[in-house]
Design a protein around this nucleic acid. Structure first.
Length: 274
DNA sequence: CCTTAGTCCTGCATGC
DNA sequence: TGCATGCAGGACTAAG
């Protein structure tokens, strides 16, 4: 599933190719993918050029010359491709055609991905928390949020911090030595510091590796990322911890899998009453 | 404030 | 082999 590093990789590839292009037409094969009135969507895009492309959390943002913005969220299986294979054609949901006759394809097996239009005057993605790219920001957010919620739940909450999903949350907690179910307010100061430091490191490394391909994530040329070879815990149930050789365990937290090393990530001991 | 369950979907793994 | 079942999950919503 595309998280911040995967989306960032895609945006970096899109940027030099589609910036400056003019949208000539849009073909919608699966209606619900475009979360907007279709006529209005078409009208607001057609004939207008893309002035810039950037990322906000897990969203790809295409800015139009009009000031309107198109956001694309890939959810689990969404892909943006410049070329289609035969198999991709089955899952083609939306095609953007530019005035130079080039195409950008939105392919999405599970149909969870969404494309949305944000009018110039309205705030863009107002519900999102800050980007998790510097230690200070993360530390401030996590120390402010003296929550009893599990620390992993907080990391996944896009109102708290954006861009972190199941893979990088588990990886960050492993490197910080924190059990994923630890109530946030009980994570020790040293643990919070470590976590705040590790998150940008992990995300930066994953961007360098062009993202983690486990099943569906692909770059715009259909090739895979390389970060999956460097994961410590995610998807490694019953395999040996790379640090201590204990078997990695999978638990369910908030209805989703969490992988961790029971030896490197011990639960915080309850505050012993005197 | 918080958690849980349901929704959207398809491909793949599992079981008989 | 074939068919049924169930599971995975990001963001959102409703209910408790």
């Amino acid at each position: 599933m595309p998280e911040l590093p995967e989306v960032e990789t895609i945006v970096r590839e899109l940027k030099p190719i589609i910036t400056g292009k003019t949208v000539q037409g849009i073909s919608i094969m699966w209606e619900r993918t475009v979360d907007a009135n279709h006529d209005e969507f078409l009208e607001k895009l057609k004939g207008h050029s893309i002035t810039s492309v950037n990322r906000r959390g897990k969203y790809i943002c295409m800015h139009l010359e009009t000031g309107d913005v198109v956001t694309i969220h890939l959810r689990m299986t969404g892909k943006l491709l410049f070329e289609l294979t035969e198999k991709d054609k089955t899952h083609l949901r939306v095609t953007f055609t530019f005035s130079d006759q080039s195409n950008l394809y939105f392919v999405d097996i599970r149909k969870f991905g969404r494309i949305k239009l944000w009018q110039k005057c309205k705030p863009l993605l107002p519900q999102l928390g800050p980007e998790p790219l510097d230690e200070k920001t993360i530390h401030a957010v996590l120390t402010d949020t003296r929550s009893r919620r599990a620390i992993k739940t907080l990391l996944l909450d896009q109102h708290v911090l954006v861009g972190i999903g199941n893979i990088y949350a588990d990886e960050a907690l492993f490197l910080a030595g924190i059990h994923p179910a630890t109530p946030a307010y009980r994570v020790h100061r040293a643990g919070l510091r470590k976590l705040s430091k590790r998150i940008p490191e992990i995300l930066g490394k994953a961007i360098k590796n062009k993202g983690t391909t486990i099943s569906d994530y692909r770059k715009t040329d259909s090739s895979s990322g390389q970060n999956q070879y460097f994961l410590n815990v995610y998807g490694r149930e019953n395999k040996k911890c790379r640090s201590c050789e204990t078997s990695i365990v999978r638990i369910t937290l908030n209805n989703r899998s969490s992988y961790f090393c029971p030896d490197c990530q011990r639960p915080t001991e309850p505050i012993s009453s005197v």
